[in-house]
């Protein structure tokens, strides 16, 4: 790829963003939409630049919540799938329950999380973890079952214990599937975090983005809501980006060399 092509490739998404902003501005002017319904891009930028500190703190808090929630989902998901993979009977007993758990809308569980864990970070993290754990379990389980039967036979012949077979064969074989699960979970973790913050977030100096959205709505400060929403999208993008980067490294180690 030539340098010009690389530049075009890098600038294309930015050009799209510029077009969207222009359309937004055009709609605002052409249809004379009121500020509390649709603030102008300039008003949104001003709302952020006038007082960036709470937004930056909100970004940090939301990113922390999402990262911790994702970390818990990733670890617990891989471990739970590993336990389920050890026995078909255990899988048949437990897997449908995890599926059922996934089907319950988060919005229905979140108030219960507040009852059990109180307002604040624990409930938000639990919300992020609950939303993102299922893809990790489902993908890891499928990956753990996909180890090459020839290699499984080799491990059997070498009298490898179950734990060693899991560690040295099943888990590395499952890496491509685990990575897929983690990528899906990364996107979901931010959604779960923001939803958790709507219900269990605490306002104040260290209010996360979800709380800034609800506070802005209550005060009819739509420009501040827009800032918080855009920043939430950026946080989601950053979490997904970090996971994608880590995934790429994992895949390079366990997949490319095949």
């Amino acid at each position: 790829m030539t340098r010009t092509q690389q530049l075009v490739r890098a600038l294309s998404p930015l050009a799209t963003v510029a077009v969207v902003i222009l359309l937004w501005w055009a709609c605002k002017i052409l249809f004379e939409v009121k500020d509390f319904m649709l603030p102008s891009p300039w008003a949104v930028a001003t709302a952020f630049l006038a007082d960036p500190k709470p937004f930056l703190i909100g970004c940090f808090e939301t990113a922390m919540n999402a990262a911790i929630g994702f970390g818990i989902a990733a670890t617990a998901g891989v471990l739970l799938a590993s336990v389920l993979s050890l026995s078909r009977r255990v899988e048949q007993s437990v897997y449908p329950l995890t599926l059922l758990f996934q089907m319950v809308p988060l919005i229905a569980i979140a108030p219960l999380l507040v009852v059990w864990l109180g307002y604040g970070r624990p409930s938000i993290i639990a919300s992020a973890a609950i939303v993102s754990i299922f893809p990790v379990i489902a993908n890891t389980l499928s990956g753990l079952r996909s180890a090459d039967p020839h290699l499984q036979e080799l491990f059997h012949l070498l009298n490898a214990s179950r734990v060693k077979t899991w560690w040295k064969l099943a888990l590395p074989s499952a890496v491509p599937n685990i990575v897929t699960g983690l990528r899906i979970a990364a996107g979901l973790a931010t959604i779960g975090t923001i939803a958790g913050e709507f219900i269990a977030g605490i306002s104040g100096d260290r209010a996360p983005l979800g709380v800034l959205v609800t506070t802005g709505l209550r005060n009819f400060q739509t420009d501040r809501v827009f800032v918080a929403v855009l920043l939430a999208a950026l946080v989601g993008f950053a979490v997904y980006g970090c996971v994608s980067l880590a995934s790429r490294l994992l895949l390079r180690r366990f997949l490319v060399q095949r």
């Binding site: 020839h150 290699l151 080799l154 491990f155 070498l158 009298n159 490898a160 214990s161 060693k164 040295k168 064969l169 590395p172 180690r253 366990f254 060399q257 095949r258």
Partner: peptide, 22 residues
């Protein structure tokens, strides 16, 4: 075996060492 059955993510040294590691 008919096929070498080596673990694709391990180096030659670690593949050969596998029976002892296990």
């Amino acid at each position: 075996f008919q096929e070498p059955r080596l673990l694709p993510w391990l180096t030659l040294l670690d593949n050969v060492a596998l029976p002892l590691r296990l």
